[in-house]
Design a protein around this nucleic acid. Structure first.
Lengths: 340, 340
DNA sequence: AACGTTATCGGGAACGTTGCCGATAGCGCA
DNA sequence: TGCGCTATCGGCAACGTTCCCGATAACGTT
């Protein structure tokens, strides 16, 4: 009852494998009657071409490797959702790898993806990754690579990101407009390009409104467990105390909110809070949290579209570029203007 | 600079492919010196065996197919997280398929997974799936299959689920203990086994406490968009009005919370709310939401462990069984006892 | 001296598919 | 009659790997 091969059909019908193969792909040089015979028999036996044999022959797998730090993360699961949907429609499968924020694991995953002969690679860098030579080598070997979200400017590859500068600029300006002037920024590791872009947006907004930039207000998380509490305490101890927190991720935003609640600080009266996030329950939090929404699914879709383009038109590929997907600011209770 | 094969090594070293192959796997019948030569050369050229060729030869792919309704969902992304982690350690890769709650898509995905020659299949049924003959046929063909979460009792396969009965029982009893007696249950489609189990737990708790079961209090969602609002309105119009909502999923719980807030109903004063969920921000909601926590990651881990066991010891496999992973009730503000 | 044993290696088939090159037969045409 | 053309099909190699079967030489044993 096992897998039917072209050979089985050939034997049963007293034909050669070549004939069967060509009949199945509707070649013009096969007699219509023979074609019908083969087709019917194949249908009856539920013949499915063996993609492994095809991969071996054509040296391609019709699979796309996706390397992300973590699947169980609002942003990445939404992005993968977008990726899978498009890939499916284009006849590609998606193989998932998690780095768990480990550089070493990222390299291993990359090698495994390569040895699996994926046709292309979609990657969002781990927070430990500061050196991208492994990816550069991969590119040099001709592997189509597209980065998304956690990208690196040191790589000459197509990159798809949210418009982090603009998003951060708007978030910061929104806080300023709502009366805050001492705005802390809790963010992710500094060598990630998205961190730098957001920081730049933050600084630009401060500058525009004549607020001096204070390095002490910036804190870099490391994705470690339970690190948000101490960071928050540290910031609250500053003189004068910050009157707003702008966080760079879901995890930091939620962590901040929890930490502030535990310390009995009122939001937005004592401290305003806005996050860079994809949480769809932001509105249901206490208080409803203002957010800069990253279009995670769209980022995934655009990234995989570009990748497939690279795969299928390898020669005359569009030159590498950075594609920015606009973010949306949603103001809620957590950044309400408070009259003192 | 492309992929080195065993043939390249053989040619360069003036050996046969057989010798190289055996040298690389450390066969005893190869001269130590030759072995060293081959190993060193392979190392230098960064030789990696082609897994596609291996797959073709061994008729296995070292890949596991995972079919879920949606990746961008707290439960499933956590489950996939657990799956990937274990699979990675056991040398398997994970290929993701989404059904988007479509039966048709589920069948197609299954066929694709088969034709990709996955070594085994992990599946959580779509909400449209009432007929499981496609899976039964798959099993009959000898494909190892493990179901998780959305399982079907009509299939003689290993199934890994949360202890839905006990979880629902505890949730309901918790509501009763906190003084509620008219408890509505918003749940998912009725032909899913988890729905039935939860409903049974709910009824058992009611019965234990002498509360009559009222069919009108049960509402079945269909995963459609914006369906929660009308369901809530409908329930609120009942006489007497329910004093508690027990929801069966993240989406329903969050939807309920939002709908109740919009209708200016106080939680827990007017209505208590408890969810079956995996949201890690439940504590940060307004009010902090009581939940029955499903161990999503553990469910994924156990499921993939069983699957790999099935794959690797196909003959003397453990008989199919239903594995229940315990849930945890976390009581928060949303179900606080209210003194009237 | 004849034979068996051991150590070491090569040849070739096989996994399933495709595609290049032929092979054959029928037919039209000069 | 002989040539070329077309329609239709088969043989074979190739993709990268493993493994069964031999092959060879050196050596020990009777």
């Amino acid at each position: 009852m096992d897998n039917v091969t072209i050979k089985d059909i050939a034997k049963a019908l007293n034909l050669s494998t070549s004939t069967v193969s060509r009949a199945l792909r509707g070649s013009y040089e096969i007699n219509a009657e023979t074609k019908r015979l083969v087709m019917e028999y194949a249908e009856r036996l539920n013949y499915r071409p063996n993609p492994i044999a095809l991969s071996l022959k054509e040296n391609r797998s019709r699979a796309i490797g996706v390397i992300v730090p973590q699947i169980a993360n609002y942003f990445f699961s939404q992005a993968i959702n977008g990726i899978e949907a498009i890939a499916y429609n284009r006849g590609y499968h998606v193989i998932i790898f998690q780095t768990h924020e480990s550089y070493e694991r990222e390299v291993v995953n990359m090698q495994q993806a390569v040895s699996r002969r994926v046709d292309g690679l979609l990657i969002s860098l781990s927070s430990e990754t500061s050196d991208v030579t492994h990816l550069r080598e991969l590119q040099d070997q001709g592997m189509p690579v597209v980065l998304f979200d956690r990208v690196s400017s040191e790589l000459n590859a197509t990159q798809v990101v949210a418009d982090n500068f603009k998003g951060a600029f708007e978030a910061t300006e929104h806080l300023i407009w709502s009366g805050r002037r001492r705005i802390a920024h809790l963010t992710i590791p500094p060598f990630l390009s998205i961190t730098q872009e957001r920081l730049a947006g933050y600084r630009a907004a401060l500058e525009k409104h004549g607020i001096p930039y204070d390095e002490n207000l910036i804190r870099y998380g490391t994705f470690g467990p339970d690190e948000v509490g101490p960071m928050v305490d540290d910031l609250l101890a500053l003189e004068p105390r910050p009157d707003a927190f702008f966080t760079a991720s879901d995890r930091l935003a939620a962590g901040c909110l929890g930490a502030l609640q535990k310390r009995n600080l009122r939001i937005p009266e004592d401290i305003a809070l806005i996050g860079f996030t994809n949480m769809n329950v932001a509105e249901l939090l206490a208080p409803p949290m203002s957010t800069v929404v990253q279009p995670a699914q769209e980022i995934g879709q655009v990234a995989v579209e570009r990748l497939i383009e690279l795969i299928e038109r390898k020669q005359k590929a569009a030159p590498p570029s950075v594609i920015k997907i606009p973010t949306t600011l949603i103001a809620r209770e957590s950044t309400r203007t408070v009259v003192k």
